[in-house]
């Protein structure tokens, strides 16, 4: 019974946040003069209205889930990894380069490209971890700054040395990947690709890893109280490198599957403009770094975004309403709003 109440309480908070966020969205809709119910109906349709829209939402959720998982792992270990964007971009670029230039059959190239993406993202992330472990440089700030460096670097690469000069369009992008290395689509004519399977499997594996393995336990304790962990024999520096590598590896994987499954090339800005990395971080915050929760939250956020697009197509309400709903959602979850509220009520009685 106690467990049930506890479970209920843990649900209450996100639920309340969703209600408040939708209310904030309603105000925004009202301000621009839209009908609240109609707009939300359009939004729902845009996200889940048909099988096509639903798979579209899942395909948008794919990189968000993967990034969210990586961030969740880092957060659990107590590291504020804000560098997913850079890690994703470098992962994507490496995957693209590998898929283009590596000789071999399509399958070999595909696997090699994914691995290259994971490693590139992981190393970029572990670099920030190393800076913290070795020089005590604030990880939150370095990861943020490294984002700019990574995206600018990738932008340079596709603007000059790797630029696609075959087409007439002067876009900063690599050449198109050979169809043999494309990740297969899950349903014919839909955008959903095999990357989603990877993301779903990743969520489950990370959940099991955190919960049932020795290393997962050590990571959780490190996040809970680093002194306690080091007292018990957990080596923080080593753990930091490993967990940052894996964290960045997830982001790199996100970039890779996006390139191999959706874009089929590295196009400058194609990953940063939709804000996948930040959506992933949001998903993690929403779920309190729980792996399965992060996956669910990622789908929710993706739904808000695809729903927002549907809404924009069919009403006069701008897409940006979604970003308001997302932001308010985060704000309220992060503030442990209900938690404090309950506490204060108890104190008074």
């Amino acid at each position: 019974m106690d467990k049930l109440i506890q479970f209920g309480r843990s649900l209450l908070q996100p639920l309340l946040a969703v209600i408040v966020a939708l209310a904030a969205g309603a105000i925004a809709i009202a301000i621009v003069g839209g009908s609240v119910t109609e707009t939300y109906a359009e939004m729902w349709k845009g996200a889940f209205g048909s099988f096509y829209f639903f798979t579209n939402t899942l395909s948008r959720a794919t990189p968000i889930i993967l990034i969210g998982l990586g961030v969740a792992l880092a957060f659990r270990a107590g590291f504020f990894n804000m560098g997913s964007e850079g890690q994703m971009v470098l992962g994507a670029l490496s995957a693209a380069v590998t898929a283009i230039y590596l000789p071999g059959s399509g399958m070999v190239k595909l696997i090699a490209a994914i691995i290259a993406g994971v490693i590139a993202g992981g190393i970029w992330s572990a670099f920030a971890g190393w800076l913290d472990a070795r020089f005590r440089m604030n990880l939150l700030i370095t990861t943020l700054l490294l984002n700019y460096i990574a995206t600018l670097f990738a932008g340079y690469m596709v603007s000059y040395p790797l630029k696609d000069r075959t087409g007439s369009a002067a876009m900063a992008q690599t050449v198109m990947l050979d169809p043999s290395v494309w990740l297969p689509k899950l349903f014919k004519g839909m955008s959903l690709h095999a990357g989603f399977i990877l993301a779903a499997a990743g969520a489950i594996l990370l959940f099991l890893f955190m919960r049932y393995t020795v290393k997962g336990y050590e990571i959780r304790m490190l996040g809970g109280n680093p002194l306690f962990a080091s007292y018990g024999g957990v080596q923080r520096g080593k753990m930091m490198l490993i967990s940052m590598f894996v964290s960045g590896g997830f982001a790199g994987l996100a970039g890779s599957v996006e390139v191999l499954g959706t874009q089929y090339r590295y196009l400058d800005g194609a990953l940063t403009t939709p804000g996948y990395a930040w959506s992933g971080i949001m998903a993690t915050l929403l779920a309190g770094s729980h792996p399965l929760g992060t996956a669910v939250a990622a789908i929710l956020i993706a739904a808000l975004q695809t729903g927002g697009m549907g809404m924009e197509r069919n009403t006069d309400v701008p897409l940006e309403v979604s970003s308001i709903i997302q932001a308010v959602l985060i704000l309220f979850v992060s503030a442990k709003f209900t938690y404090s509220f309950i506490k204060r009520r108890k104190a008074r009685s």
Partner: peptide
Amino acid sequence: YQWGVAKDATVTENGLMGHAD
């Protein structure tokens, strides 16, 4: 509190430290 436990972890988790192997 500083070295001996992680306050947010459960009794079991706190008991496991050093015994995991």
